[in-house]
C-alpha cells in the first residue's frame, strides 16, 4: 500500500493522544481516543500514565466520570477501585469477599515523548516490542491547542502537505502557521475523526496567537469541507 503521508509503519501503532501536561499526578481523568477505542487516561502519583479502556468491567460505566482516590481509580457507579496495573482492588458492596484475581480493566501501552502521551492500540507484547515514538527536533515549546476535525486522518495529512508542512516523524508534521514555526501531531481518533495537536516553537504575543488560532480554524474548515464533499 502506498503511503501518501510518508509516515513510518510504527505510526499506525503509536498515536499521540493528549498533551502530557493535561494529566496531573493522581488528580484527574481525561478522555482520549485511539482508532475507535475510547480511553480513560490518568497519571499515578509516581508519574506513570495509565491508558485504559473507558469502561468499568462491572457494569460498563465510563471510567472518565470516576475519580482518583489514593492512587487508584474509583468508578462513579459502585466505587470499584483499580490500581495502576488495572487490577481491581476493592468492591465496596462486598468488602468481605475475596477479589476475583482475573478482574481488571483493559489497559494499553503508553509512552511519553515530545510533550505528548502516546498510546498503542496493539495488544500486549506486540506493542511493547515496538520502538517508542521518535523524538522530533521540532517546535514544541508552547502548546497551542488540540483541534478536533471531522475528517479521516489521511485527509488532514494531505492538507498539511498541501500547506507546505513536512512529515518529520511518526504522526508529526512541521511547518508554519500564520508565520509561527509549528509542529502538528495527528491522532487518529476514529476512521472519520482526527485530533491535530498544535505546538509552536515559542509562546507568541497575544495578537500573533490570535492569528495562529484563526489559521487553525480555517485549516479545519477546509479539511472538513473537502471530506464532506467527497462523502456526499
Amino acid at each position: 500500500m502506498n503511503s501518501p503521508i510518508g509516515v513510518e509503519m510504527q505510526s499506525q501503532i503509536w498515536q499521540p493522544v493528549l498533551p502530557s501536561h493535561y494529566l496531573r499526578a493522581s488528580k484527574n481523568i481525561v478522555a482520549g481516543f485511539l482508532q475507535g477505542q475510547e480511553l480513560a487516561l490518568w497519571r499515578s502519583e509516581a508519574g506513570a500514565v495509565q491508558a485504559w479502556e473507558n469502561r468499568c468491567p462491572h457494569r460498563g460505566t465510563r471510567l472518565t466520570i470516576g475519580r482518583i482516590l489514593n492512587d487508584q481509580l474509583s468508578c462513579a457507579y459502585h466505587g470499584w477501585e483499580f490500581d495502576t496495573r488495572g487490577g481491581c482492588t476493592a468492591i465496596p458492596a462486598n468488602p468481605s469477599l475475596p477479589l476475583p484475581k482475573q478482574l481488571r480493566v483493559k489497559s494499553f501501552p503508553v509512552a511519553e515523548a515530545d510533550g505528548m502521551v502516546w498510546v498503542s492500540a496493539a495488544a500486549g507484547n506486540a506493542a511493547a516490542s515496538q520502538a517508542l515514538p521518535p523524538t522530533s527536533t521540532g517546535a514544541l515549546a508552547f502548546f497551542c491547542r488540540s483541534l478536533g476535525i471531522r475528517a479521516p486522518m489521511g485527509d488532514v495529512a494531505t492538507e498539511l502537505n498541501a500547506q507546505g508542512f513536512k512529515a518529520t516523524g511518526a504522526q508529526t508534521w512541521e511547518g508554519t502557521l500564520a508565520g509561527q514555526a509549528a509542529t502538528v501531531l495527528l491522532n487518529e481518533a476514529t476512521s472519520l475523526r482526527t485530533f491535530a495537536h498544535v505546538w509552536l516553537s515559542e509562546e507568541p504575543a497575544a495578537a500573533a496567537l490570535s492569528d495562529v488560532l484563526a489559521k487553525c480554524r480555517l485549516f479545519r474548515r477546509d479539511v472538513e469541507a473537502r471530506a464532506s464533499s467527497r462523502s456526499s
Partner: peptide, 13 residues
Amino acid sequence: KPILENQVPKKMP
C-alpha cells in the same frame, strides 16, 4: 441519569 447515560454500550448485555 448521568451514570446511566455513561454506560457503554447503552444496550444491556
